[in-house]
């Protein structure tokens, strides 16, 4: 039996989170309905841990906050202050698509000779405890068509998979960070052996994950095909109903565009960065007023091509992880899965 695969009872999960509190800032999905969010858990607050759904806002904001101060300068003295970095952080209950998304963000923020220090510090301190989907959370989910899957381990430090009877979780501690969690849970007496027979691999007690609700066929040559269709008239059709809002980008686990600005706040000049979105008109507007992406057609095309082609060209992986949030929340019914299918037929 693999010593890094253990069993943890579902009823022990509050204790499991409590066991992390002395060493980590702990976040877990809590809250009802539209309030379901990755919530800071501490010893004082009672929380309703949610295992059935996953928050609309992906955990990327733990690494890449909606807005953050990069540095401040005292206007009178010229003293520069840097924000404090939060210590070790563990996020529990991340779904495989979001962990995959974080692995994709790592490419953008840490690779190709460019390291974003703010992101890198948070990433270094972040432990991802991933919960495989025992139920598919959204009807728009299609991660298993995008190279991941409801039990995918990409990006995970710990992977929790429900057992056949649903009473416990099989915990696979996959990385050094994951084994640090294992040590805390073991010390709290929360882990037991899986009982699987090491000699016959067949007795893995973990339940096979269900398939996603939305199944599409993603062509192997998608990136090249869709990039070559830059001038295709279909982009006008896809964008026709688009309202030009930022919903798709802001609920996306892999959108990472930001804007930099500074503000005078009570005697301190603060340089900050905040989420931006390529669907907004001012995103690509240049000094002097020229906008190379003047209408929603160009903006939407850029968003989709970034997800499906440009990122692939640079990092060798598709940026879209198939979480389905943008499809579910688009007020105009736009559907990236339909674009992926179309791209494959080109």
């Amino acid at each position: 039996m693999d010593k890094n695969t253990k069993l943890i009872q579902k009823t022990a999960l509050p204790d499991a989170l409590a066991a992390l509190l002395p060493d980590y800032r702990v976040f877990a999905p809590a809250g009802e309905n539209e309030r379901l969010a990755f919530t800071r858990i501490d010893a004082q607050n009672a929380f309703a841990l949610c295992l059935s759904g996953t928050p609309l806002m992906p955990p990327k904001e733990l690494l890449f906050p909606r807005s953050e101060t990069l540095y401040g300068t005292d206007i009178k003295t010229g003293d520069v202050s840097l924000p404090q970095t939060a210590g070790p952080t563990a996020v529990f209950g991340v779904r495989p698509c979001d962990a995959h998304g974080i692995a994709n963000l790592d490419c953008a923020f840490l690779e190709k000779g460019y390291v974003d220090s703010a992101y890198a510090a948070r990433r270094e301190a972040l432990t991802l405890i991933v919960l495989a989907c025992a139920q598919i959370p959204y009807e728009t989910c299609f991660c298993d068509s995008m190279g991941g899957g409801p039990a995918g381990s990409e990006g995970a430090d710990v992977l929790l998979t429900e057992t056949e009877d649903g009473s416990a979780l099989v915990a696979a501690f996959l990385t050094g960070k994951g084994r640090a969690v294992k040590a805390l849970w073991a010390a709290a007496g929360l882990l037991s052996d899986t009982g699987a027979d090491a000699t016959t691999k067949s007795a893995n007690p973990a339940k096979a994950p269900p398939p996603c609700n939305l199944r599409i066929s993603k062509d192997k040559g998608l990136a090249a095909k869709i990039a070559a269709a830059f001038d295709d008239p279909m982009w006008a059709r896809f964008s026709e109903a688009c309202l030009g809002c930022g919903t798709c980008s802001f609920v996306c686990p892999t959108c990472y565009c930001f804007d930099l600005d500074s503000e005078n706040r009570g005697g301190t000049a603060e340089e900050f960065r905040c989420w931006d979105c390529c669907m907004f008109s001012d995103y690509s507007r240049m000094a002097g007023g020229h906008n190379p992406r003047p209408t929603k057609k160009e903006r939407l095309r850029n968003r989709y091509l970034h997800k499906l082609a440009y990122f692939d060209e640079r990092y060798g992986r598709t940026l879209c992880v198939g979480c389905g949030r943008c499809i579910g929340k688009c007020p105009a019914g736009l559907d990236i899965a339909a674009v992926i299918e179309w791209g494959g037929t080109l």
Binding site: C245, G246, T247
Partner: peptide
């Protein structure tokens, strides 16, 4: 505090 300033309300 929960608003994400996506401006869907404005655009719709």
């Amino acid at each position: 505090a929960r608003c994400i300033r996506c401006y869907a309300c404005r655009n719709a």
